[in-house]
Design a protein around this nucleic acid. Sequence first.
DNA 1: CTGTTAGCGCCTTCAA
DNA 2: TTGAAGGCGCTAACAG
Lengths: 339, 339
Amino acid sequence: MVTIYDIAKKANVSAMTVSRVINQAENISDKTRKKVEDIIKELNYVPNNSARSLISKKTKILSLMITDIANPFFTNVARGAEDKAMQMGYQLMLCNSDESVEKESKYVDMLISTGADGVLIAPANDSSKKNIRKLTKYNIPVVLIDRHIKDLKCDQVLSDNETTTRRLMEHLIGQGHKNIAIINGPPDVATTQDRYRAYHDTLTLHGLPVNRKLIHHSHFFRDSDLSTTIKLMMELPKNERPTAMFATSNFIGLNIVKSLQKNNVKVPEDVAVVCYDGVPNYTGSEPFLTAAEQPSYNFGYMGMQMLIERIENTAPEQPRKIVLPAEFNIRASSLYKRN
Amino acid sequence: MVTIYDIAKKANVSAMTVSRVINQAENISDKTRKKVEDIIKELNYVPNNSARSLISKKTKILSLMITDIANPFFTNVARGAEDKAMQMGYQLMLCNSDESVEKESKYVDMLISTGADGVLIAPANDSSKKNIRKLTKYNIPVVLIDRHIKDLKCDQVLSDNETTTRRLMEHLIGQGHKNIAIINGPPDVATTQDRYRAYHDTLTLHGLPVNRKLIHHSHFFRDSDLSTTIKLMMELPKNERPTAMFATSNFIGLNIVKSLQKNNVKVPEDVAVVCYDGVPNYTGSEPFLTAAEQPSYNFGYMGMQMLIERIENTAPEQPRKIVLPAEFNIRASSLYKRN
DNA sequence: CTGTTAGCGCCTTCAA
DNA sequence: TTGAAGGCGCTAACAG
């Protein structure tokens, strides 16, 4: 390994001078700078970040902690985050928590050990609070994306849960639906709670009842069979039976549609479906599912920007909150007017 | 920051003893070990990896260099790579090269600086050789995935380009197609070359002509309009006009189908389409495109495994080559028999 | 403008 | 089984 001392010796200067050249210091004569730079190139010298970090306490390493990179929402988040990180001279560590606070905790320890300069995190659930607290305790700035956590003061990039849910619901109500089911995520996740509240409030606002039998919690995984839930709901007496379903996340929406079809319930004739968040359309054909598409790339990009500003102390002291609106795409799955 | 000295002082032992406890050394009395461990927990001590790396020259950081995490093939590669890395106690750095050797080169320098223990890479193109050479020059093991590079001796996980291409082609030939176009990737990428060769050989083997007018190079990006190419081909005299197209990558396949439809060419009636590699089906409906689906997760998982074995010196000295077969899914886009 | 000294947190080596 | 000294590669602080 080539060190600054090797460079120094060959250039007949001190190691300090080499260090100055590397760090673009001002007070160096052009001659020595040139000489040192030439030798650096000649010997293929690359500075050792471990040594630098030991002194500076900075690693230029950031982390993106998400639940699963294979979920298209997070795939785009990652792409946005990495773009911004690279642009600002940072490297990005990828961590998949799989919705598990324990796995998250392992990563947190690794990140502290590594000396990550900051973490952009979509927390697994409300219990992630202790993981995040641990990070901040070690002075590692954290920016929350997608899911906020109560009583945790930090920058965040969130979806406009209230507006988006309301608009999806009002679309259904406008189509004449009265019994609207909600297939939601796990109860201990912020988005689940916020979207439920907006669901509840919108129903109430429009004078519609909130029926506990039409509320179901699923998980976020791809490919889960919701047949049992659907059967239970479809066997309700006609005055309670849902004619529409609100899925609070992308995979839940897909799973509902699949499970409905599997159980011979026609979409949208028997049951209309709307979905919070979408998925990429990889087919040539028209997408089917009505969805409020989130600007996922920007969750990553803007989150990263806030994180780096926080790290580099160019951010206002007060925690900032960015709320990103969704884009509505009304499609066939919810287009069937009822009386 | 808590250091081993803080622990040592509080435990009335030397820093060395603390270090031994951390590193699970054998020769420590149970009593002192217990005492030290308790204090470590009490003070929330986390070892400083920069300091450790400075001595050990190991960072427990690996890199995954791919062209774009948003391509579903690489999304799954990333998931597989990260799973294996985490399982073996490594962290994973994500790098998107965007098919650019220059961007790749920047990442390489950062990775050398960071002291990455190894790199799993899908090289941008043949010119990536110098980037990889640089890594190996710094004794950073490299494992190639998806794209090999001539005269570069290292472990690799590749697709079975020859067999897969041949089977896709023979499926088309079996359907009665004689003029089969190939919409390939950029010429300087290994998979482009290998798949072209197999395309060429299969045609020849079956006594079919290879027509230069039916050979087109596209790039790998999502959403590119292939209308010009398609028009040119469809305006050929009937005896040369393609009745089938072989797309050598997932997004190319999608772009072809879209562009064909846009130009009022019916798939599969006018032109059948087969595709090397697939995309996730996020719709409830049947997928349309005939595809040889690659076990992308395993590219990442097995590649990572080989990389870690190489790093930890548990691999045979000879470079290994794993060839993963594809799964054939014949679908509507190629099911239309010709005479 | 350039060099010297000391030390970041940890571990290797040797000694007790 | 434990400890002391020295150094990994680099840079802050000071000196010249």
